[in-house]
Amino acid sequence: MAGVSHLLLIEDDDAIRTGLELALTRQGHQVSAAASGEDGLKLFKEKRPDLIVLDVMLPGIDGFEVCRRIRRTDQLPIILLTARSDDIDVVVGLESGADDYVVKPVQPRVLDARIRAVLRRGERESADSLTYGDVVIDRNAMTVTKAGEDLQLTPTELRLLLELSNRPGQALSRQQLLRLVWEHDYLGDSRLVDACVQRLRAKVEDIPSAPTLIRTVRGVGYRLDPPQ
């Protein structure tokens, strides 16, 4: 763990907010809390947190909208707090740029494990750089450029790209990627992978709907192909 991480918790219910604030503080995080989307965005600009835990159902602008607004400028990790009954929530949340989600009522241990896993994604691992066509992955600086321009990737997207580029030409199943990138220790929700791949393609590929770098392997998962 690299020091104390600063979290922003956006949750409208007082009891849940207080409870989670207590629990997360006890797990060793520094927590700021906001009761609405608007307050959350304001607090986000003031405190520049390392990660946001975001409730989906908020009065005023909802969690998805908060997520979209933050993603316009920043790539910090976002974990959604959802109610599983609304299955569509998960899909919309992942499409609006969330990195992971937990379902209420969530055990603090589980939330903490997810938070730490997301934060680890930004850590560098080796010092070489790889080139795929006009895409350059600099593992030292943890940056990705396309045709010389810096790409704004979230830590999850970056980690996904790195894991795929560790095994070029080899297909990885969604469940493998969930373990490698999201550190789920059980078989998880493959939609996390699909949504993240879509977002990554949108940033990395020339034509996201006809990907040449991150290919789908039917019945298996995904594979990074160096361009011919």
């Binding site: 219910d13 849940i16 629990a23 009522p105 055990q107």
Partner: peptide
């Protein structure tokens, strides 16, 4: 029921 339970679950570990 879920909302109060979420708050309660959050502090059970503590």
């Amino acid at each position: 029921l879920r909302t109060p339970l979420t708050a309660m679950t959050a502090v059970t570990d503590i």
